[in-house]
Amino acid sequence: MRRVEHVMGFPVSLRIDDPYVPDGVADALFGWLREVDERFSPFRAGSEVSRLDRGELSADEVSPDLAEVLGLCEEYRVATRGAFDVRLPGRGLDPCAVVKGWSVQRAARLLRDAGLGRFCLNAGGDVVTAGGPWRVGVRHPELADRLCTVLEVTDGAVATSARYERGDHIVDGRTGLPATGLLSMTVVAPTLTEADAVATAAFAMGEEGVEWAAARAGCEVYAVDARRRVLRTPGLPVAATPQDAGDGSAAGRSGSSPRAAGRNAVTNPV
């Protein structure tokens, strides 16, 4: 079954390939995401996040879910030495970057708890998969109708951060300036909570974020820097046989083959 709904300001595409799909499971999933939007959106005056930001909620009135989200935000702020910060000076509390990955990962858990084992959930470009292999294309940072690589993911998550859709919305918390060091940053991780937060945090860090993300346990990285150079980790699950219908030559694409690996420069970039 397939279903697409617009929640939290972006399209969410659900595809379930299990032979039997219990009644109401998709309703429960989209219901959860709408609940998240009500509770955690900084753009809704009545949300928990807005009320906390205005000082209307005390520390012991914060829900366990919001406490978990804020805990994750703090974890990534510390890990990036402040580049990733949901409390930027002059701006309201905005935990969106963590809320998205966290809530969609929990939505995937709803599917698993319902006994489903073969699905692909895409929330505004961030993907959680189960029971693959699923072929996950990574959008080319400059050509909206092209891909720059194709990944093969069985059980895991893929998240991409970039400026091409919403402009300079990711700010380096250390400088207060928009992050411009990278064109796009894609992270493959066991959960979307980690993949989305790491992709956003690394994008905020700029070029040094590539190495930072690559050093995170369980993370594989595909980054395009401002000079249009691709930097990726050797363990990135690049799909083995690209079905070429475009203008990209086969060379240098099947990164997992020894032939291609031998031709690619191995570097420790800046």
Partner: peptide
């Protein structure tokens, strides 16, 4: 950086 079209199940962006 490559620009390609391929048969995929979903797109990350």
């Amino acid at each position: 950086l490559q620009a390609q079209s391929a048969d995929v199940d979903t797109v990350s962006g």
